[in-house]
Each structure stands twice: as C-alpha cells, then as structure tokens.
Design a protein around this nucleic acid. Structure first.
Length: 574
DNA sequence: GCCGTTTTCGGCCCGACTGTTTTCAGTCG
C-alpha cells in the first residue's frame, strides 16, 4: 500500500472504532495517524525500515506496527476483524451532515439500516422519528442531508467558493454595525478544496448582524441561527457560517475559525503548557480566567512565544515549532512575480494569440511570458508540427521587436511518451529557449513504470521544467500512480524545476510535497497553464499553493527578472 | 492509542447549536 491508501485505511479504522463506541481518544489517535501518514515526506517503506516512522510524534508502537502491516500486506488483523464485523455501506452514513457515529450505531442496531438508500426509505416511512432521541426534526434534517450529499458531495474547488465568500464578506463589511469582518476557515488557509465558507464579524449589535446575514439575497436557505452563529446555504449550494463576536474577541475568534483544527489543538496544548486557556473568545490566565488582551493575531502568537504564522501554514505540519525557533519561511508574494511560463496560444489549443497573451500579462504588471504550446503527438490539442514551430518563432521574434517592456520566451510543452522519451528530437528542442515536459497520455501504468518514465525525461539534458507531475484533476480524476519523492529526488539531481500548475483543478505539485522539494533544492515555477488571456490570473492559485508549501521567493524561477531567467536557461544549455 | 523534565498512569482542546427532553447527548468545527 502507498501512503494515501494507508491513511485511508487508518481513517476507516477510526470510523469503525467510533461506531463501536470505542474510547474517543483512541479514535483520535487513528485519525491523527492518518493525517500524519498522508503528510510524511519520503518513502513510507524506507521510513519503516529505518525506524524513523516510530520517531514521529503521534505514531506509537502499536500504530507503527499497524502501518507496517498495511504497507506490506494491505491490512492488519484487528482491522480485518472489525471491518468484516460491520456491514458494507454503514460508514457512508457518516457523510450525512448531522449524523455521527452514535446515531449511525442506533440506526444500525435498532432499524438495521446499513445504506443511505435504506435510511432514506426509513425516514420517508417515519421510522426514524420514532426512535428515542431522534424525533421529527431530526428525520427531516437527515432527509435534507441525504439530498445535499447526493447533489454536491460537499466539496468545492477554491475559486468557486472564494468568489461567493468575498461577496458575503463585502456585504457584511458594508453594514454600519459591523466593526471588523474577515473570511476564515480553509479558504483563508488557501486549501485547494473547501467544504464551506467561514466568516467572522465583530459588532456591538450581534442580533442585528445575525438578522442581516440571514436576510442577504445570497442566502438561499437558513440552516441554523443562534446568538453568535448563523449558517446559510448560498445560491451556489455552499454553506456559509458567520460567527459574531465582540471586537475585543475578534482576533481570537479569527484565529480559532481559521484553523486548521489540528493547528488549533496544538496551539491550545501549547497555551496549556504556558498555564493559559485558549478558546475563540480569548487567552485566559489563572483560575479567575483573566483575559490577556491582544489586538490582533500576531499578539496572540507573541504571548505564546511564537512568530506570526501565516494562515496558509496553519496545518500543524511543523509551523509551530518553526515559529518558536524564528525559522518560518518568508513566503513568496504576488509582488515578487516578474512573469510566468507555461501557457498556450492559437498555435496549439489556446484561444488567444501570442500577442493577446503578452498584452494580458503586461496588464498584470509582468515583464515576460513563456509561450509553451503542445508538441506534435498531442493531436487532441493541435500539437505543433515542425513547420508550425518555424512560423511561431518568426512571430515571437517580431513581437519581441515590437512590444516594449514585455519579453516573450520561446517555450514548448513537450509530451513525455510512454517510454520516457520526448516527443521532439534534440535538434528541434534546441530551437526553444526552454522546455517543459509533461504527460498527457497512457495514464494507467503501474507506479514503478510511471516513475521510471518521468525520471527518464528528467535525465534528458534539454528538459528545464516538469509540469503537473501527477496529472490529477481535483474532484474528477485521480492522480496517476507515481512515486513523487523519487521524482523529486531525480529533479534535484538533474536540476529540473517542478511546476506548481495554477489551474484550479490541478494545483499540481501538491503543497504537501513542497517542503520536501524545497529541502532537496528543487526550484519551482508558478504557472497558469492558461488557454486564454483571462486564465493568466490562475497564477494566483499557484501562488496560494506555493505559500502553503513553504516556498520562498528565491525558490521560484519566475521571481527572476527576464534577463536573469534568460541567463538561467542559457546556462543550463552549456 | 499516544505521551511524559510534576512520567509508566491518567490525562488527552473547547464551546455553540440542535433537538430532544426538562437537563443533556450528539454533532460539528
């Protein structure tokens, strides 16, 4: 089993234990382990072999043993026993909002319900409402929950939700009773996929603000409303939570609702070590709970002896330790970007001419672009034949003479063929200023074969950048099987940069691999993979992921000036 | 199941909201 599969098994294990009414801390230990395994750098098998896995905080003797067995044989005894004791489909019930382990167990034991379909029928027949501690309202809520699970699956790409969240935030900010209002939650942490919108507002008139939020035209339905929390379903189907606090409480609430949950748990443990209690309303000392006043998040961190941790890094993946040691990275910023590479024009499957792409980039304040149309085998995308390349380069030369303050690099996105060779011969590749290599066919190879295929391409002396290294399309296509640590190792050895593709469905390289790549000395490029001028903005999403991956300005090729980048490419050809 | 400079047992983050029941369990983040 690979890391992802092991993490999934541990999560399933946690769910089973929960339904069986096990010790909640044991459940958490498994959930925690799943998250840790998912975020491990390096090859899991070798981490087990060297005993390093056992050294990781949160992985004790028992879990290390289970993980080893999962890795080697795909299962472990306790897991098999428990899993087979539970009906298939029961765990799906946990996906329904409002249903947790306890209720699922009751439904199973009392009504023998083991699938979502059966649950739906039981609700319609009124059996669920008859159960102790369930009632009519719960039954209705379950039915609604089933519909929403089916309709939306409850996960959304970042851009779709971000736009909605900004509208809600701006509406709240425009209200005269709102003092401060910010987007919190996974959106603020710039996660690639988000489940809902979290907003925090401060005011002296909570009831007024709550009513205002619930009555916004964006609010399709009111899910819940209390003194300090309002939940609406927006027209796009995304739920939005508003938390209302006093202005004194705002920094603590903003931090709390920004999360991540794991970061918060770690922060509160740290507060406890300092004899403090931390919650969304403050940071309290002593038995009489005297609040330590903080005017913003930075002061909260300071009280706990930490540097300010940017929201993107709040994943409990080493940021607290780094903040303590003043070792946080100075994250790359939008203003650092001088240009971008990887985009398509009408010479392959892009909808904009090269000039239109260049002018759009100039409007964004950039001083260069790299045009990278597809290579000849990419028939699906109008890949360039040799005669086309000559025409394209003549046009770029002409534009470079004509356009002031904008340089166009001649690039190509060359297909990595099934055997790891490239789709143009070396003489053709040398016609370009730089070469991006990527996979667009034959996705279903075994992992070892795919990894070897990509590593062979990385060894090619004319390859400068590897694009979308896993080929994933978020919420629609799984990544192809590839051993990324091995690919990163090879990229480091051959000094090939790895792109962070800013297409909202790709965001590939994943931020979870960022630190590993960076530590190995691999550079990255923040790209849009734009197929039209307006898509150049996608670089913003690439930047989000770069920041989440701890990348700094000096790690990012398109933070170089046009001249320095030109020199960088030229030097690689020597 | 994990962890530990008050250490090998006894903790493990904390609070709001909902629905049900009438004092609180369950869920969620």
């Amino acid at each position: 089993m690979n890391k992802h599969q092991i993490a999934q098994a541990l999560d399933v294990m946690a769910a089973i234990l929960e339904i069986n009414g096990e010790n909640p801390f044991k459940v958490r230990a498994y959930q925690n382990a799943a998250r840790i395994v998912e975020g491990l750098n390096g090859d899991i098998a070798s981490l087990i072999a060297t005993g390093e896995l056992r050294e990781v905080k949160g992985i004790g003797a028992q879990l290390a043993k289970h993980i080893q067995e999962l890795c080697e044989s795909g299962s472990f005894e306790e897991y098999e026993t428990l899993r087979t004791s539970l009906p298939v489909g029961l765990l799906d019930l946990l996906k329904i909002p409002g249903l947790g382990a306890k209720k699922v167990r009751v439904l199973w034991k009392k009504l023998d319900i083991t699938t979502i379909e059966a649950l739906k029928q039981a609700c319609i027949d009124g059996h669920v409402a008859a159960l102790e501690r369930f009632g009519e309202r719960t039954q209705q809520k379950i039915l609604q929950g089933i519909e929403s699970v089916k309709k939306y699956e409850g996960r959304y790409l970042f851009p779709k939700v971000e736009a909605q969240a900004l509208r809600l935030r701006d509406a709240l900010k425009s209200h005269s009773d709102v003092i401060r209002c910010e987007i919190a939650g996974s959106l603020r942490r710039r996660m690639e996929i988000v489940k809902d919108i979290d907003l925090v507002a401060s005011t002296k008139h909570p009831a007024t603000v709550a009513d205002f939020f619930a009555s916004l035209p964006e609010a399709d339905a009111l899910v819940g409303k209390g003194d300090t929390k309002v939940t609406i379903t927006t027209a796009t189907g995304v739920n939005a939570d508003l938390r209302i606090v006093t202005d004194e409480q705002f920094p603590y609430a903003l931090h709390h609702f920004t999360g991540s949950k794991e970061h918060n748990v770690a922060m509160r443990s740290r507060a406890k070590e300092h004899d403090l209690k931390m919650n969304e309303y403050g940071l309290f000392r002593g038995s009489d709970e005297i609040n330590i006043p903080c005017k913003d998040e930075a002061e909260i961190f300071k009280v706990l002896g930490l540097d300010f941790i940017p929201p993107e890094l709040r994943q409990d993946m080493g940021e607290i330790e780094a903040a303590e040691n003043h070792a946080l990275p100075k994250l790359v910023e939008e203003i650092d970007l001088q240009g971008t590479l990887h985009m398509h024009s009408t010479y392959s499957d892009g909808r904009g001419t090269i000039e239109e792409m260049a002018l759009a980039a100039a409007a964004l304040g950039w001083s260069y672009i790299g045009i990278t149309d597809h290579s000849k085998s990419a028939g699906y995308a109008g890949g360039m034949q040799l005669t086309t390349i000559a025409r394209q380069h003549a046009e770029i030369d002409e534009l470079n003479r004509k356009l002031k303050g904008m340089r166009i690099f001649k690039g190509v996105e060359v297909d990595i063929l099934a055997d790891g060779s490239l789709d143009y011969d070396d003489d053709t590749l040398r016609l370009f200023d730089f070469v991006i290599a990527s996979i667009h066919s034959q996705f279903t190879m075994p992992e070892a074969e795919m990894t070897a295929r990509i590593c062979k391409a990385l060894r090619h002396p004319l390859v400068d950048i590897l694009a979308h290294p896993t080929g994933r399309l978020l919420l629609s296509r799984e990544p192809y099987a590839v051993n990324l640590p091995t690919v990163i190792e090879a990229a480091a050895k051959h000094r090939v940069a790895i792109e962070i593709n800013g297409h909202p469905q790709r965001l590939d390289l994943d931020w979870r691999l960022g630190r590993l790549a960076k530590e190995k000395g691999v550079k990255t490029v923040l790209t849009s993979d734009a197929h039209s001028p307006d898509q150049l903005m996608n670089v913003r999403y690439s930047l989000n992921i770069a920041r989440k991956g701890w990348w700094e300005k000096s790690d990012v090729l398109n933070c170089l000036s046009a001249d320095d980048l030109s020199a960088y490419f030229a030097k690689r050809r020597l």
